[in-house]
Amino acid sequence: MILLLLLLLAGPGVLAAEAPVPPAGPPVTDAATVQARGRVLADALRCPVCQGLSAGDSQAEAAVAMRLRAEQFVREGYSDAQIQAWFVDRYGEWVLLEPPRRGRHWIVWLAPVVLLAAGAGLVILRLRAAATVPPSVEPDLPADLAADPFVQRVLADLERG
């Protein structure tokens, strides 16, 4: 797990305060692009002081600071992966609203799909089993009732369909 995290951090380059890495691309000057990318990035980050809100949705000081920092990094040319890695570096993986698609986190992504498939398979098996068993109209009647002419007529009608 730790190795995976280190690989993620090492991959795109970590924007650490103590050892800044070069941005992945050229500086971004278009304000609309900076704002849009900053918003998407902030939406994927957890607001550290809120309950169930993203940094993009909250007006808390910490969330606003995170948005500003994300926009600053976009402006400087850092890639989305570099920026996300920087926040993970500061707050840990907890800061990601969605579990990363790697390591044990795959369980969270795959379990619902597997359960859904298993449920669907179970339903199909049950339906097939029900279809192969012929419906029986032979009721389990006591001997005196089975000998009753009216009951016999009803059973005969049922047999004919």
Partner: peptide, 13 residues
């Protein structure tokens, strides 16, 4: 004023 230190230190509250 910009909350810069909050983010630099990963402050959660």
């Amino acid at each position: 004023p910009t909350g810069s230190l909050i983010v630099d230190y990963g402050v959660g509250g």
